[in-house]
């Protein structure tokens, strides 16, 4: 092609007519608007109403939000959600990074098998995950307590999901189990994209392998780390199904998270307006965190250029 890229021919290029792109977007966007955007707008609207989900909503201004700030259950749920971030986001990323560091730039026998196997928890339905782990944690015949008793640690055996101290870490561990394979696979893919010449150059400069991991591999994964952070953080804050199928928030409110609160208010307690307000606040938190992570990433990227 001899046409210069500086002045592309406008005639004949797809999208030359102003409305062509919109024709392509319209059907998908229409479905999206009906099923996603409209419910979002509705939620925002109902968050300013007292509404049981059935009778006519009554406008009550920001009362739902005021109630929310003073609701002790919301504070508990928020705290539990923060604990969940540790298990769902921080630990899987750290673990994934450590595993990647071990794997990368080394001949691993059966790497494909490891990669595929470690990813399996991530593809299972949360309901299946719930069945699996409720059985593992089962107080009388669950494998975990069986194992502890077999090695003489009867003292440690306990009804994990019904224990006031251990329920939240026990459910959190399941979250970590689901996420770490995902993080690792993401990081391995990123590490394989790092320019090989960087390592060669480092070697010539006399850098040891540990130094190479620290100074080339880790910085090279910056993009993947921020992506893993955003996706796992969103997943951590949205987590509902895992709780629903393992503890339903119990014992007491030990494992109640914010998304659980939304569900309970909307569909069990018939406080749809209040549930909407919680959903709006949680959305704002998610947007703020995502924005913060991406902003930090952008700053690093512009520093590099």
């Amino acid at each position: 092609m001899s046409t210069s890229t500086a002045a592309p021919p406008r005639r004949g290029r797809p999208g030359r007519r102003r409305w062509t792109p919109f024709l392509y977007i319209l059907p998908g966007f229409a479905i999206y608007a009906v099923f996603v955007l409209w419910p979002i707008v509705d939620t925002l609207r109902y968050s300013f109403f007292a509404w049981d989900g059935f009778t006519a909503p009554v406008f009550n201004g920001v009362q739902n939000y005021v109630d929310l700030l003073q609701d002790p259950l919301f504070h508990i749920a928020l705290r539990n959600s923060l604990v969940f971030i540790l298990f769902y986001s921080i630990l899987p990323i750290v673990l994934g990074l450590i595993l990647t560091m071990l794997l990368v730039r080394r001949r691993i026998f059966g790497l494909v098998v490891f990669r595929a196997g470690l990813f399996v928890p991530y593809i299972l339905s949360m309901v299946v995950v719930g069945v699996v782990w409720r059985w593992i944690y089962n107080p009388s015949f669950g494998p975990l307590n069986q194992l502890l008793r077999a090695v003489g640690l009867d003292l440690l055996a306990r009804p994990w999901l019904g224990d006031f101290t251990w329920a939240l870490p026990a459910v959190g561990f399941v979250g970590m189990w689901v996420q770490y394979g995902f993080c690792m696979v993401l990081f391995i893919a990123g590490a394989q994209r790092i320019d090989e010449t960087l390592y060669v150059a480092a070697k010539i400069d006399g850098a040891g392998e540990t130094q190479q991991l620290w100074n080339i591999t880790l910085p090279g994964l910056r993009g993947e780390i921020s992506v893993a952070l955003v996706t796992t953080l969103i997943a951590a804050l949205r987590v509902f199904d895992l709780i629903f199928v393992t503890t339903r928030g119990g014992p007491g409110n030990q494992t109640t998270v914010v998304a659980m609160l939304i569900y309970d208010n909307a569909f069990v307690l018939n406080r749809a307006g209040y549930a909407a307000a919680i959903a709006v606040v949680l959305t704002l938190i998610i947007l703020a965190i995502s924005y913060a992570v991406l902003a930090v990433r952008m700053r690093y990227m512009s520093q590099e250029d």
């Binding site: 977007i25 996603v36 959305t283």
Partner: peptide, 25 residues
């Protein structure tokens, strides 16, 4: 449309799509 064409409100519509992925509804 997003990958190969230029059009008005591209960024706005793109952001609207992004919103759906983040909302905990």
């Amino acid at each position: 449309a997003f990958g190969r064409m230029q059009f008005r409100f591209k960024r706005v519509i793109f952001f609207l799509f992004l919103l759906g992925i983040m909302v905990p509804l």
